[in-house]
Structure formats: structure tokens, C-alpha cells
Amino acid sequence: MDLTSAHTVLRSQDGVLSRAQALDSGLDDNDLERLLRRRELARIHPGIYVDHTGPATWSQRAWAAVLFHWPAALAGPSALRAHGLRSTAGEGAFASWPDRGVQPGRAAAVEPVHVVVDASRRVTPPAGVVVSRRADFESRVQLHLSPPRLRLDEALLDVAAACSDEAAAVAVLADACQQGATTAARLHASLAARGRLPRRRVLLAILDDVAAGTMSAFEGRYLREVERPHGLPTAHRQVRVVTRGGVTYRDVDYRDFGLVELDGRFVHTGPGREWADLERDVDAMARGEVTLRLGWSHVLEPCRAGLVVGRLLRSRGWDGQLRSCGRDCGAAQWLRRAA
């Protein structure tokens, strides 16, 4: 018997077939062995086959990993890739990977495939596959999608929690919002419903601010972790200014030394907002003022941000001393050179 009876399944799974599906299609183990000998099938994992002997694509490896652990779904960065997300930051946790082929039966030469199974199961993944376990498995995954995958917001939070630092975690979530795949409000609701998770508190505060359209967490973090620890002068905040475009407010006003605008947006808001920002900065320069714009990615690296702001203020005549916030302060090296 040939693969005709399994054609529908193969077509829906990018040419990948499990032994159980083959048997349901009318094939038996002797048929499978014969198809392997005739090179009409190749084995990716035990009991998992692909309908060619060339390099397996990422999609085929993803299907193979899911079927090997069935019931299972793609998780983490593999789920994000399946959802079609790409990195807009260049170094994000979910880049737009090339679909390099991997020879069936060999370990993955590129990033592993991540899958999730129910928390009650104990499995031993093959080479090239990373398995995680989750409670409420069925409610967190979308088994009807092709291939099955973790729900988008759940996968985003998992990837953000696994990032090396808070700035990278925020970039992951911001990338997804920028692409219109989700919203800060949706992510906040999903995170609020989750239990313990690395960086849960800071991400909740950030998403709460963004979803509510406020700036409290962002402004507070700048004050506590950038301005005060690095010896910057105490700024005037929310200073009302009348310009030709109307009334505006300066976020952080160091008076004679410069202005810091705290841009807590999670996504770009279009050319209208960008032009308004540019025109406001030009108006400030025309008045002899210098404006420095800081976003979440900057404030989440407080030592580096403190150094940048300090250098601006010193260039404008501030005679104070920028200081190190501790032994591991990122501004310390520059301070030593400038001494």
C-alpha cells in the first residue's frame, strides 16, 4: 500500500505523519517499513515520519515535535513564530528566522522546537525539542490551529519572562503590540491571571500604565533609578509651557541645563504624533533648550541612562558630580575616565 490513503493528513501537516495516524489511514507497520526502504518516507523521531528524504523545514520539525508528544502544542518562541510574529527591535527574542532545513533523524542545527504538554505528564523529548509542562493545558493552547500552539499572549509572557533582562522583556511585549498582534490591556489581563512568573511585578506595572494611558510607573522609575542614584540635579516636573501649538507640559525640566521627555508609549502612534514630537523639539531648540527623549528601553538600563543625561547636563553647564550608584554601576567606567 502507498501513501494515497494518508494524503489528506500529510497535506494538512506539511508532509508529516505519525505512526498512529498512518494506522488510522489503513497502513500497517509492514507498509511503513516498506515506504521507509523505498525512501518515500523518512523518520524524524521514533514513530514520526516526513514524506521525503531531504532536509526537514522548520514547519515540519514543529509538526514532528508536536505529534511526537501528542497531545501537545508549540510553546515559547516556537509558538510566536507559528503565530507569525517577527522582531522589530533587531535583537528581540522572536526574530524572523530563516527556514533552514534539517536532515531527518538528526538533531536540529538551529533553534530548538519548544512544545508544551499537560502538567500531569512526564515525557523525554528527543534531540532538538524542549518541553515544558502547564496546568490548564487545554484552556491555554489552540489545538485547532496548524500546527497547534500556545495562545499568543501566554507565549509572549513566557518568552518575556525568560529574557535576560527587563529591557529585553519589555521589547518582546512592545514588538507584539507594535505589530497589532495584541494589546497592552490584553497582556495585562493575561499576566494578572498568571501565578508566579519572573519579572511579574515590573511587567504588571508597565502594562498597567500603558493600558491606562498613565505614566506613573515610568516617571517613578526614572526618578528612583536614574535621577537620584546617579546624583543628577532634582528636576522640576510637569512644568506647564505655552507654545505656539498650545499648552504643553515638560516631563522633566532641568531648567538651564536641558529637558528630558519620558516617552512611555509601547508602540509607535503614527506620523501625526511623531511630527508633533519633532515640532515640539524644534520649538524647544529655538528657545535655546535641548530635549532628550527617553523610552522604556532606556530607563530599564538606568546606569546608562543616568550617564547619558549627566553628560548632556554637564555639556550645558551643570557643575554637579555624576556619581556611581554602586559597585556594578555602568556609569563608573566613564566617571573614572572623566576624573
Rank of each mutant, 00 (worst) to 15 (best):
61 R>T: 10
268 H>K: 07
51 D>E: 13
16 V>P: 02
35 L>R: 07
106 R>D: 10
37 R>H: 10
231 G>F: 08
301 E>G: 10
127 A>L: 14
226 V>E: 07
105 G>D: 12
22 A>E: 03
247 V>H: 04
243 T>D: 09
1 M>A: 12
292 L>C: 13
197 L>E: 02
293 R>I: 01
39 R>M: 10
278 L>A: 13
198 P>S: 09
324 S>N: 11
3 L>N: 04
60 Q>N: 09
34 R>T: 13
102 V>T: 15
174 A>Y: 02
235 A>C: 12
155 A>S: 09
175 D>S: 10
249 Y>Q: 07
301 E>N: 13
133 R>P: 03
206 I>P: 04
95 A>R: 14
245 G>C: 05
127 A>P: 15
124 T>S: 13
187 L>F: 01
115 V>T: 15
217 A>C: 09
174 A>K: 03
252 V>K: 00
104 P>V: 06
3 L>Y: 04
151 R>W: 01
192 A>M: 11
29 D>M: 08
27 L>M: 09
93 A>T: 04
91 E>A: 10
155 A>K: 04
2 D>Y: 03
98 P>Y: 12
200 R>I: 02
35 L>A: 06
120 S>V: 12
26 G>C: 07
88 T>F: 13
19 R>W: 06
84 G>M: 03
90 G>M: 00
268 H>G: 13
328 D>Q: 09
331 A>C: 10
79 A>G: 06
51 D>M: 06
223 L>Y: 11
100 R>D: 11
239 V>N: 03
329 C>I: 06
250 R>G: 07
330 G>V: 01
260 V>Q: 08
319 D>R: 14
318 W>H: 00
80 L>N: 01
303 C>S: 08
210 V>E: 07
159 V>T: 06
269 T>P: 01
101 G>L: 10
270 G>P: 09
276 A>Y: 05
186 R>D: 11
220 G>H: 00
250 R>T: 14
93 A>P: 07
167 A>G: 13
16 V>Y: 06
183 T>Q: 01
199 R>Q: 12
301 E>H: 13
177 C>N: 09
282 V>R: 12
332 A>G: 08
339 A>C: 01
238 Q>F: 08
265 R>E: 12
249 Y>W: 14
171 A>C: 07
113 V>E: 07
28 D>C: 09
163 C>T: 15
251 D>G: 05
68 F>C: 05
233 P>N: 10
226 V>N: 07
278 L>K: 08
79 A>M: 06
276 A>K: 10
101 G>Q: 11
269 T>H: 14
126 P>M: 10
258 G>T: 01
126 P>K: 09
333 Q>H: 12
314 R>F: 00
300 L>A: 00
259 L>I: 15
286 A>W: 01
20 A>S: 14
44 I>E: 09
274 E>I: 00
65 A>L: 11
8 T>C: 08
260 V>C: 08
102 V>G: 07
24 D>F: 00
225 E>S: 06
204 L>H: 15
123 V>H: 02
108 A>V: 15
